[in-house]
Design a binder for these strands. Structure first.
Length: 628
DNA sequence: GAAGGCCGG
DNA sequence: GGCCGGCCTTC
């Protein structure tokens, strides 16, 4: 996959396995035992090739369920599941002890555990201002809201960052974050072992002295270097007679870590990160009430696998020395990016299921091309992906999606659901704007899917507007809907999705758009270039103006410009033009459907867009969004 | 930029 | 399965 930067191989990547089968097994993993020198410990920017790199993945346990437990003040031992319509979307750990899983139906779960607490996700409800928890949820009149979880997720991420100064933190999903500990750990390493800063006369490329032994007490589960099988009577024998572990945790126990390998400075680095991670986890638990599971290792992919070693309020550490034996029995389809089509294609091609199986494959490149490069490395514990600091913690897209209780068959039926989705987007974006007021979704995308088909989508640029209302979004959404379904008479739409994408903080000051204030020094170019006329203004100053003539009604829009203001003025004209087009669209729509006459957009004859005028008062919250 | 696809939780 | 979100490829 090309999301992983291709690497120039240090040595022959595709040869060498045939002989290596007989040779030392560890030879496959030659990258995991680097010689660490003074240069390494004193360098600041070795990046992904830093032999002292330390990465963690921190994951909230049964996150949605934990959110509900906190919200309701439920006892930590109370079995609880979160419901979405009739299926479970989260199961807390106490409930899992009853054998309840995410795929179960509510009925079956209750059968297994009669005192199970069942909580339905929050929903937007017809006539209500905000999403809430109702007892009469109905997919015909409600739409689920995951907002509460998003907010809790942001709180956790913020607290983690706060507690780990100097670390890079990448929020990877609603319940996971990658953390790069390399920088602060290096500082602490030098602080605790100041002699490491004293470069010997032999030079900076001298290997470091032996590392001190580490007391791992309280630092988490150490994944063992040499796992040993359970005694015979406890081994789960498979049907085919083999005893290879299908589930490591269940079928293997581990011997003491005695003399299996010597401690390295990277191990010391891992232990320091484990201290920091442990403290941060405790803060999250104490301040916000969420338990987390963390994995600590040398890169993202291993950190992720390590976190799943043992779950629920734990952390685990994977030392370099333990990588080979941890990876070899691993089902490779559990590895990030191998869980999908690529993974199953590889499994099928080579009749393989574990990492160890794939290590025996000589040549993958002819079948899997570019993918084989990073697969080769991943199998050997190498992953050079960086932890990208998501400074803003703001998402680049915002999606509202609804599976329809009954399929839409007439184009006109689409407007209602688009309005529902638009309502949610309006609420969420305006909400996000409380944090960063200049948030601007560059495009609006409408997706419609029928049955199992992959679906079709339409998108369009979304104008910047301060006054982001349901109407604005729904109007643009309706337009996309018309383009998408057109006059299609035999449609059967079962799912609609409306999304903002390309969300960013607007650089062109909205002040200049809305208030005609001083031109900003933005270097941004607008996509379209309206007509540009040179001229002289009434005061005799050299000036120019931008204009646009509506092809439908002939109305002319002009925007005066002064020296150096061109780009902003073009944006303004574009905005005015878009609004005017919307007006025509709204009129057309009202004429043809005869139902949605309360369009709030009015034609602007002057390019003085202060506040959007409204034909009727702005509906508050989402109370009006569901109206017929 | 537009549409679609693959990946993940 | 439902409701997301990120990133990539192709045109």
């Amino acid at each position: 996959m090309s999301s992983v930067p291709p690497l120039s191989p240090r040595k022959s990547l595709w040869k060498g396995k045939a002989k290596a089968i007989q040779a030392e097994e560890e030879e496959e993993f030659d990258d995991i035992n680097p010689v660490i020198t003074y240069r390494h410990i004193l360098s600041q920017n070795l990046g992904v090739r830093d032999p002292l790199r330390v990465i963690a993945l921190c994951d909230s346990d049964a996150f949605y369920a934990a959110c509900e437990m906190n919200r309701l003040g439920v006892d930590k031992d109370q079995p609880l599941v979160v419901l979405q319509w009739d299926s479970l979307i989260a199961v807390n750990y106490p409930a899992r002890t009853y054998g309840i899983s995410r795929m179960d139906k509510k009925k079956d779960a209750l059968k297994r555990c009669p005192h199970l607490k069942v909580v339905h996700v929050a929903t937007y409800k017809e006539g209500e201002k905000e999403p809430g928890y109702w007892d009469d949820v109905d997919t015909n009149t409600h739409k689920v809201s995951l907002d509460y979880y998003r907010r809790e997720s942001m709180k956790i991420a913020a607290l983690i960052k706060e507690n780990l100064p100097g670390c890079e933190v990448e929020k990877a999903s609603i319940d996971e974050a990658f953390i790069d500990f390399t920088k602060p750990v290096r500082e602490m390493l030098l602080q605790r072992h100041p002699y490491l800063a004293q470069v010997p006369p032999e030079g900076v490329d001298t290997p470091l002295p032996p590392a001190p032994s580490i007391n791992w007490d309280g630092l988490g589960n150490l994944i063992p270097v040499n796992p040993v099988p359970l005694p015979e009577d406890k081994v789960q024998t498979r049907e085919d007679g083999g005893t290879r572990a299908i589930n490591r945790e269940k079928t293997l126990v581990y011997e003491e870590e005695i003399g299996d390998s010597h401690t390295t400075w990277h191990d010391v680095a891992l232990s320091i990160a484990a201290e920091l991670m442990s403290a941060a986890k405790e803060q999250v638990r104490a301040k916000l009430g969420y338990t987390t599971s963390a994995g600590i290792s040398r890169n993202k992919f291993l950190a992720k696998l390590t976190a799943s070693y043992k779950k629920f309020n734990t952390q685990s550490v994977l030392r370099n020395a333990a990588i080979p034996n941890y990876l070899k029995p691993m089902q490779f389809q559990k590895i990030r990016f191998l869980g999908g089509k690529l993974g199953s294609a590889i499994a099928k091609e080579y009749d393989a299921s574990t990492v160890g199986d794939l290590l025996l494959i000589d040549e993958m490149q002819s079948k899997f091309g570019e993918n084989s490069i990073w697969v080769y490395e991943i199998l050997r514990g190498v992953d050079r992906n960086e932890v990208k600091d998501k400074g803003s913690a703001l998402n680049k897209s915002m999606l509202a999606s609804k599976n329809l209780p009954k399929p839409i068959t007439k184009p006109s039926e689409g407007y209602h659901w688009i309005r529902v989705l638009a309502a949610e987007l309006a609420l969420r974006l305006n909400d996000a704007r409380e944090m960063s007021p200049n948030l601007w979704p560059k495009t609006l995308v409408l997706h419609a899917r029928k049955g199992y088909e992959s679906g079709r989508s339409k998108q369009a640029a979304f104008p910047f507007t301060r006054d982001l209302t349901v109407d604005t979004i729904a109007l643009a959404g309706d337009k996309l809907w018309n383009e998408l379904v057109g006059s299609n008479t035999a449609l059967k739409v079962t799912n609609v999705q409306l999304a903002f994408t390309g969300i960013d903080t607007a650089e062109i000051g909205q002040s200049s758009i809305e208030g005609f204030l001083k031109p900003s020094s933005s270097k941004k170019r607008s996509r379209e270039s309206p007509e540009h006329h040179e001229g002289t203004d009434s005061l005799g100053n050299s000036a120019s103006e931008l204009s646009h003539t509506c092809p439908r009604c002939g109305k002319i829009f002009t925007v005066p410009t002064v020296e150096g203001s061109g780009d902003d003025q073009q944006d303004i004209l574009l905005k005015v033009k878009t609004e005017h087009d919307d007006f025509h669209f709204a009129q057309d729509l009202a004429r043809q459907s005869g139902q949605r006459t309360a369009i709030t957009v009015s034609p602007k004859t002057k390019a003085k867009p202060t506040k959007r005028r409204k034909v009727q008062p702005e509906p508050k919250g989402i109370e009006k969004f569901f109206r017929k």
